[in-house]
Design a protein around this nucleic acid. Sequence first.
DNA 1: CTCTACATGTAAAATGTTACATGATTGG
DNA 2: CCAATCATGTAACATTTTACATGTAGAG
Lengths: 193, 193
Amino acid sequence: MATTDQTQMAVLGGLSIAPMTGYALREQIRDALGHFWAESFGQIYPALTALERDGLIQRQAALRAGSSTFAITPRGTERLRELLAEAPVMPKPRNGVLLRLFFGRQVGEEACRQLVQDTRARAETELAEMRHIRDELQADTGPDAPYILLTVLAGEHAARASLTWADEALGVLDSLTPQHSPAPAPAIVKDHP
Amino acid sequence: MATTDQTQMAVLGGLSIAPMTGYALREQIRDALGHFWAESFGQIYPALTALERDGLIQRQAALRAGSSTFAITPRGTERLRELLAEAPVMPKPRNGVLLRLFFGRQVGEEACRQLVQDTRARAETELAEMRHIRDELQADTGPDAPYILLTVLAGEHAARASLTWADEALGVLDSLTPQHSPAPAPAIVKDHP
DNA sequence: CTCTACATGTAAAATGTTACATGATTGG
DNA sequence: CCAATCATGTAACATTTTACATGTAGAG
């Protein structure tokens, strides 16, 4: 088994929505699942080969020379449901920003501030994207739309949390060196509800 | 180079707080960084060997036969600061829960509800843990405490976001099949502030 | 005709997990 | 003494990324 269950699940899932080429599949995964999932060509093509060998997908007529469209088979749909029913695998966390902040004293307050501000900016972009996707999703009355909405909402909540955390974190960093503040720094947080 | 920069950063960081054995280091990483970082023995021991070879850490007198304590050297501290100053590496996202929800129609509303509820329960546990750690941290007046606080706050915000998302998601799932609800289901969300 | 986007695939290297083998020390 | 915990390390396996090689089709 050269490919993992996880990759097979994403590939079968993608093909369950519509038949497409490996190239298109990767684009779909990037665009539709990109906020919480990623697969590279190096995983997708071997997975397609393995799935075809096992009869879970079928290669259809080429749209153009040298390319082929894959479609999920009934057995593939069955397999997809099995995979989806398995317990979700959580990858080990590896948050480079938080690791750097944990040892932040080594690099100083200013470097930490920069790190937090970068994170804040990314969260803002992400939040805007999520809202945009949600707006588009309103128009979608297909049966998948409510399920997709769940994942978009998750992205929105995560981005908002990242944003408010960043603001709070900047407050903590400010209170570290009050002499830098133009005015007496405000209290640290107003958090726990 | 059998070990990565990322692992070296965590190992040097741990030893920058106090000299310890590889075993203790792994426990420290699990307990202190566990919410956002993980290293296995299979990474830690080779990293220790490599760092010692490069003179970034030193093996000290054994506390007991067969064990040795490692301490960071001045050059090791220098290296740690270099590593911390590098741009943070974000691992590719792989959220098994969201992947399953995206294709949720394949497994049905009830399975999705279960998935969301499990996530909610985990978030609740996580939130309680974070609050506990924060309380303990109040007593810590050391120079690292404010930086560590930043990482705990991040965990708190993430857990809270996960919690509120889960509640909202359950609402969406309820509204999917109103005939199941004992009373007319409420509106979908009250989210975007 | 030439550039860009579409398309497929492989090989090597990097990365990370797991299970195993081995032994010391301590508390009951 | 015996079990649990402390402690070190390796080897095999699994996973993933990256770079490369190759070619088609359409737009300007």
